[in-house]
Design a protein around this nucleic acid. Structure first.
Lengths: 213, 213
DNA sequence: TAAATTCCTGACCATTTGGTCAAATTAACG
DNA sequence: CGTTAATTTGACCAAATGGTCAGGAATTTA
């Protein structure tokens, strides 16, 4: 009996739905990450979730609904990272924490990042409203914070937008392009030590690059 | 009569194949960029190339063959950018030129970059051999160059790999995520001036970040 | 001009796709 | 226990997909 099976059994029918939905969402995330919405098939997802396709459709009536749920989860993780930006008003401290958080997410949840990348590449058919509201508001607000740091002479004058893009791209690269990085690393994933160095380097270059240290 | 039609007419049958293949490849690039290999359909490509699907299959027998050709073209552009790294032995000059070239490519050929991104996300089913040979060799060779700069005290000690990843991610972000950037820019693409600023900022932060200036 | 070659395309086909459904199984509860 | 509600699934379907093909049109060549 597997761990999941025990968990299901123990809570019985009450939580079957909960458990199954979690399994399906995880499978869906990895398939959507790899093939995008159009390229993914419900059969592949069902197979990866180890259940008949019809069972999957019992929990998620349509591919769209399933995808929507996956994307919502990812956006929540993104929001969580966003918060770490505001833990402190010191530029060094705030940016360090933010970059660290984003690097951690890239390592722990690379599939989510890939689904997001696919969404944007497809011109955000599902999350366009998020981009225009939540993401835009968050960005503008942090642009103000960074601009204040510049006005106070705490960091060099750079356009805050492009600084943010640099942070996003650098950190997400370790998720989206992990296969390429792995290949260049001799076919093995970055070790904990290597990943820590990558993190340190990213923080070091960006902070020094804007004259924060 | 359109420009293409005139071009076809003028050279007549001799170059019909040439012209048609170019049109198909361009259409294919944009469809593959948006939907990945699995998500793309030959019908979509044919429609975007304004010809019946059967005609497309006359020039490219299979979807695979068409995709392979698209990817080859992209890799050649990548190689072209790679060369600019070696124009000069001065770190400031070399890195500036390389970043500039990569930013230019992101602006002029965003579709190619997206196809590349899709390939890597899918674990490089088609270009894995490139990654392990050409890309790996190029990378190791440039890692040595950068390491020499470090040993000579011309730039700060950072792991050259992660510096390269930072350059790749930052520059390619402007192609792969251009939709997100556009949305955050109020729904309009970055102007020439804005793009120049983005470029300058990237160069500035990276060079200062590694203590090159 | 006649023959040969290249190009074009509507109609077609086997397979895969997202999704349905009825019938069976399992669990919940009075 | 027996009834009700939730879960499971093989079989099925219409639409979409990659690809084929026969025959016609255009162009080149002899």
């Amino acid at each position: 009996m597997t761990k999941v099976e025990r968990a299901i059994k123990s809570n019985s029918k009450a939580s079957i739905r909960q458990e199954k939905e979690k399994i399906i969402l995880k499978a869906a995330e990895s398939v959507f990450a790899e093939y995008g919405f159009r390229g993914a098939t419900t059969s592949m997802i069902a197979e990866r979730a180890k259940m008949p396709k019809a069972n999957l459709h019992y929990y998620f009536p349509t591919k769209q609904a399933l995808y929507r749920q996956v994307v919502d989860n990812i956006f929540n993780i993104w929001l969580q990272a966003a918060d770490s930006f505001d833990d402190c008003d010191d530029p060094v401290e705030a940016l360090t924490r933010y970059i660290e958080k984003k690097m951690d997410i890239s390592r722990e949840n690379p599939m989510g990042s890939k689904v997001w990348a696919n969404e944007i590449i497809r011109r955000a058919p599902v999350i366009q409203d998020y981009l225009e509201t939540t993401l835009k508001d968050w960005t503008e607000s942090r642009v103000s914070v960074i601009q204040r740091w510049i006005d106070q002479g705490r960091i060099n004058p750079v356009d805050p937008h492009y600084l943010l893009y640099m942070i996003w791209s650098t950190t997400q690269h370790y998720a989206d392009f992990n296969h390429q990085i792995e290949t260049l690393n001799g076919g093995t994933p970055l070790s904990d030590t290597q990943y820590q160095t990558a993190k340190d380097n990213a923080i070091e270059i960006i902070l020094k690059g804007i004259g924060a240290r």
